[in-house]
Write a protein that binds this DNA or RNA. Structure first.
Lengths: 212, 212
DNA sequence: GAGTGTGAAGCAGTTCACAGCG
DNA sequence: CGCTGTGAACTGCTTCACACTC
């Protein structure tokens, strides 16, 4: 199958993200080739699954040998859009916002948080790392001036939707939502809702179920 | 279909978690009944999906009217294991661990973080909220003494697996993992890997793809 | 021989459509 | 009449099996 043509399933994309991390590990360890079975073991899937996932990107495995770590690393970076840097705006400089801001892996991957917005007047004007926190009123200006590609939402549930509506109106096409409420937005905007509560509750369901 | 018998799909469980939040909103607003279409709109699914999801729990909707908010709230709480409190241990009192500790919605839902473990000697003995941080050596004792039901992992990638192996050996049956590496554990332990990077990277993939 | 790439089969979750009940 | 509950159809991801290549 030729490269970069078809829709790649969402589940596959998420696994590619994991494979890439393993490949980078292997690369650091000086391993040159890796077979699907090895990636599968690390990722908790099957060899067939790995091959199928990679087959969406083209075919560059060597039969009898496996995949070139260097080559595959490059391909995955490209496919995942990690061969460039992205300008990220963080909405909300509370607990979660701050933790996200300081989460190093984001920067290492080329996600640079260049804008931080908070509506607390005490915070506006102060600094988070090397970024000056700006007020909600500046939202549109900030997104435009900083050339923002992607927005991370970490504000309380009540204000999340209205704020993100402004973000979408400003032309942003990707939103990562940590607010404890799923956002609704137009289909042409990529959205990921991450809910800590949903994850925890699925665990308590499992516990309650196992208890019977 | 009768209540509490069959396996409920994972995707359904996650949606139930959302429905519950909406129902609680409706309850606070004094709304007594709600139709599948209304829940669907809030949750960004379809009415058919909502009905199918709820049908796994039994059938207590009233035709022509919808579902009793109070009744459905109760059922969802029970199914999700939220009709009791859970004792939670937090591994790692760094940025993310601290943010999780202070995340109020957990407590409101009955998830009480009663144990905090960190291997930094400077932190051991100090307090996080009303909990004294204990060292890694105390892990097994702490889990036992505190009657821990569920563990949240927020430690660096390198130590996550070995630490969680000890947790599993201590008999814990539910793990929520925020470490930037998927954990592998026995099938009888409920596990959720939450990776902020995976989410972000699926967005950058969407952006890179849209750009072409 | 070892391991990829892929059509085909299998399975799970979603959507449809409609009978049935309040 | 409105809305639920659910079998049946559908869609899409996963697993299998094997031809093919290095």
């Amino acid at each position: 199958m030729n490269t970069f043509t078809n829709k790649i399933p969402d589940a596959t994309i998420r696994r590619l993200s994991l494979y890439l991390r393993y490949l980078e590990d292997f690369g650091r360890s000086g391993i040159a080739n890796v077979a699907s079975g090895v990636l599968a073991e690390r990722g908790g899937t099957t060899a067939a699954q790995v091959r199928k996932d990679l087959s969406y990107l083209g075919s560059f495995g060597k039969r009898g040998l496996g995949y070139s770590v260097a080559e595959l690393t490059g391909v995955l970076r490209t496919v995942l859009g990690l061969d460039c840097t992205w300008r990220v705006a963080l909405l909300g400089a509370g607990r979660i916002g701050t933790a996200l801001f300081e989460y190093q892996p984001f920067r290492k991957r080329g996600f640079n948080i260049t804008t931080v917005i908070d509506n607390d007047p005490c915070k506006v004007g102060s600094r988070l790392g090397d970024v000056t926190i700006r007020g909600e009123d500046d939202l549109e200006c900030a997104l435009r001036d900083d050339g923002t590609d992607l927005v991370i939402v970490a504000v309380p549930a009540l204000v999340a939707q209205q704020l993100v509506d402004r973000v979408v109106a400003a032309g942003i096409k990707a939103v990562l939502n940590y607010a404890p409420v799923p956002l609704r937005l137009p289909g042409d905007v990529a959205l990921r809702n991450v809910s800590m509560l949903v994850e925890l509750e699925s665990l308590s369901h499992a516990l309650a179920r196992g208890r019977r």
